[in-house]
Design a protein around this nucleic acid. Sequence first.
DNA 1: AATGAATGAGAGTTCATTCAT
DNA 2: TATGAATGAACTCTCATTCAT
Lengths: 210, 210, 210, 210
Amino acid sequence: MPGTDRYQQHRAQAIRAAASVFSEKGFHGATTRDIAERLGIKQGSLYYYFRSKEEALEEVCLFGIRDYVLRMDQIAASDQPFEAKLMAVLTSHLSSYRERNEALKVHNDERLYLPSGKRTRLKELGTHYREKLEHIFEEGVADGTLRDSLDCHFAAQSVIGICNAWGDIIVRDPDLDMFAVIQKCADLLLDGFRERRGADSAAVADSGHG
Amino acid sequence: MPGTDRYQQHRAQAIRAAASVFSEKGFHGATTRDIAERLGIKQGSLYYYFRSKEEALEEVCLFGIRDYVLRMDQIAASDQPFEAKLMAVLTSHLSSYRERNEALKVHNDERLYLPSGKRTRLKELGTHYREKLEHIFEEGVADGTLRDSLDCHFAAQSVIGICNAWGDIIVRDPDLDMFAVIQKCADLLLDGFRERRGADSAAVADSGHG
Amino acid sequence: MPGTDRYQQHRAQAIRAAASVFSEKGFHGATTRDIAERLGIKQGSLYYYFRSKEEALEEVCLFGIRDYVLRMDQIAASDQPFEAKLMAVLTSHLSSYRERNEALKVHNDERLYLPSGKRTRLKELGTHYREKLEHIFEEGVADGTLRDSLDCHFAAQSVIGICNAWGDIIVRDPDLDMFAVIQKCADLLLDGFRERRGADSAAVADSGHG
Amino acid sequence: MPGTDRYQQHRAQAIRAAASVFSEKGFHGATTRDIAERLGIKQGSLYYYFRSKEEALEEVCLFGIRDYVLRMDQIAASDQPFEAKLMAVLTSHLSSYRERNEALKVHNDERLYLPSGKRTRLKELGTHYREKLEHIFEEGVADGTLRDSLDCHFAAQSVIGICNAWGDIIVRDPDLDMFAVIQKCADLLLDGFRERRGADSAAVADSGHG
DNA sequence: AATGAATGAGAGTTCATTCAT
DNA sequence: TATGAATGAACTCTCATTCAT
């Protein structure tokens, strides 16, 4: 009997189990038995929670970006300088991976295996995320923090790309210092790798390093 | 299965067909029948060219990074300033994707499905690539082009990450202007997004970017 | 796959079906579909009872010699004169075939197709059987029933060989009088085919050797 | 161009190769590629010598019993006492195995996989062999060498059974002393295992044993 | 006289899914 | 709420066979 509170709790566990298995073996490489085993139930019982393996993937993907998008909304709505928002975005994105929120990885790598019909909601959320991020960049340009010439679409995509790349590495290497990575990403995104020849550049380059 | 020239030619075509299918559907999502069909032969005949589906994946992955690593060697060995080398790396990496070399994407996304034994050669090549790239960054630091404080390992990983992220986008959107992307990536990596406040920043910002 | 009673019962039926099919067509000539059909289930369902066709063969072979060896133990432990034990052995062995225990035939003809690792248990049981039989012969020699010069190893192998040969014939010809065969085998094994002439027979027996 | 002498020679080699492979792996377990490899030619080329794998089996079986039956004819036609003929039969049969005439083993174990139509010739030859052997026994009874009560059909079958059983063992154990086995088989068949209680019997039982 | 290349049928096996209990 | 049992479709892979060369 769905609708129950307990049912929803169990279902959430099922989604997490599916996320874990999908992220390890990929959607097609994972079996419903794998998922059931991780949950501690039998294969057939899984269908009490999902109508199909595909629905499981759908739920995992949604779960993966839901709070991730939510946090972006919060960050975007907050009243901080650009640099702080960027840090918040990086932290939110990368700690998603570290908190074993394997669902995000699944969303990134496996969502294409959903039929396009079931992908629209995800696409909307993804677009929403990118647009918010773009908007943050636009604000940065407007208030003079960022270069006038900046292509904010490019910037947003690049941030997402870097975060996902480092996210994958972080997931695979639990000893990696996530906050160091976040810091270095922020430096890269703000100032790049090149040495500043001007007098004041040192102060800028230093700011915020632990 | 001789080392005939014709045989090797056909086999190369088979590898390309496999790359194409794997990149579209993933290793587990793709069927040997898919590959055979793309090649215009019957399913069973594939096994004239590969001992197994897994061997096909192996060959695709190797094919995917072979010349990619080769080009990196050439770039690293060349006698150019850092900025030029960076541009060359970005161009090589991203045009790998544009040239429909789907094998690179497959290498990135699917190589983990190979048994670890068959992955060592790939790992070596990948490490070699990253080390060469790191070395380019180290030279950049040494000659004063890059910040002293730069973590070259981080830098190399980030470049690879950004390239793969944009590579995926490029593969999916054939109308995207690849050279514009390359240019913007170079700008990001060199100078970041932040506005230069100092007097001299103009000189830096100028170099050839629109 | 629990240790349920019902499950074990069904599995036993599956083993018997496999025995029947293997004995008819040989291991490689039989298909899993054949076995499933004889069981009245669909091909894929067989794998609920066996992990592989090979495991089915293994189980059949074990089933084929298990009680056969057991009966030998009982006979060997019994307190009867040699002739009675011999009769019991022949009866046990041949009626194994008549009782449509096709598993024994499978064990004899197909066990070599098992990987050597899975054959050790069978080898042990087979050796055990032969040794018990040898021991019966040794007792026969010791109590004066059998010739002093008898090679008991040869004798045991020969009994097994004759039984298997007649067993094959018996399986194929259901009208054959099994007890007549048993009797004649006993006669052969005890006294051979030659006429007893009394005093002078020795001269004849010599001719033709070495 | 069949009919040539060279062709027939090559074909004979092909038959022997097939015999070797079939005896090792069974008819269904062997592949045409296996046979071709043993011959040193390529898979497709085998069809220059056989219309089908089945025809290969047919030829092997025929080859396996042809000279075996021939030798039986010679033995049966010869003018020797029963004991000598028996020895000749045993020697002929068992040395067939030792001479790596794997074809005989194939005939025994695999002929049932031929369609019954193609089996008639074999059946005739087999029957012929058994009848000749039976006839030898009948002569032995007639001349008083063998018991009056002997079932000659049973006797012939038993001889064949024992020979095949020991033949299998001999094939697998190249160190086994074949002539010792022949001698012991002869003893068994003539006099059985039981001790003779008559005064002179000791001499008989001893004769010929090393 | 032999082979490279291909084929198609069928093998064993896996797996998402169903359903009575 | 969960499971044991079964299914059928699909998959990877093998193999006897063919045929142009």
